[in-house]
């Protein structure tokens, strides 16, 4: 068989966005096991007990993260409708809200009344820390996408990087939906 130049034959059914989307979801499944195990660790060690945490700060950063999900969603919807100006602003808002959330977690760490050398402290700092690491990486990804968005790289036909990074951002929010009650509310 001759080695024919085969770029031409291509598989018509292959849709890269579809591949990427499934791949990203599979990555989320895998990550949910990570976060699920951290939650399990928390309940294994501490039962449904917790120590004193700053409730107002917790509620505030939760609302901020939720708000950032809304802005991210709006940015994605905007670029799907080819509205680059709105997408640009809302993506920037998402990044800013993400930074505020991360700062809130940092403040929480600084003012925490328990130490990392005991079980609840270990669980609390690890869970918020791993989550914050995802937030920070999400900010980084959104920032890279935002730069390209400003350069006009994306439009309604080609916007997977925006959609993908926004999906990642939502996933980080979903994780917090479970972490927030487990760390702050359960008693």
């Amino acid at each position: 068989m001759a080695v024919a130049a085969s770029a031409a034959h291509g598989h018509a059914t292959h849709n890269p966005v579809r591949f990427n989307r499934l791949g990203l979801w599979l990555f989320f499944f895998s990550e949910s096991i990570l976060f699920g195990l951290l939650l399990t660790t928390r309940f294994f060690l501490e039962g449904i007990e917790r120590e004193h945490v700053d409730q107002h700060l917790g509620l505030a950063i939760t609302i901020i993260l939720l708000l950032s999900s809304l802005t991210a969603f709006t940015a994605e919807t905007a670029i799907e409708h080819n509205n680059q100006r709105v997408a640009n602003w809302f993506l920037m808002a998402t990044i800013v809200l993400g930074i505020i959330f991360a700062a809130g977690v940092g403040f929480e760490w600084k003012t925490a009344e328990f130490s990392r050398h005991e079980a609840f402290g270990s669980v609390f700092f690890t869970m918020t820390g791993i989550h914050a690491a995802h937030v920070v990486s999400g900010i980084g990804i959104l920032f890279l996408v935002w730069i390209q968005l400003k350069r006009g790289k994306f439009n309604s036909k080609n916007h997977w990087p925006v959609s993908g990074s926004v999906m990642y951002w939502h996933f980080v929010d979903v994780v917090w939906v479970f972490f927030y009650p487990a760390l702050y509310l359960v008693k």
């Binding site: 895998s30 096991i33 294994f44 990392r116 050398h117 005991e118 079980a119 270990s122 690890t126």
Partner: peptide, 29 residues
């Protein structure tokens, strides 16, 4: 596979940050 990562992460945290996941005198197991 995340399970192995979590298990070793907790060990690393116990080692590096002095956390108490596996320290039975400080509430770990």
């Amino acid at each position: 596979t995340q399970g192995f990562a979590v298990a070793l992460l907790l060990i690393a945290l116990d080692r590096v940050a002095g956390m108490a996941f596996f320290n039975s005198t400080a509430g770990g197991d």
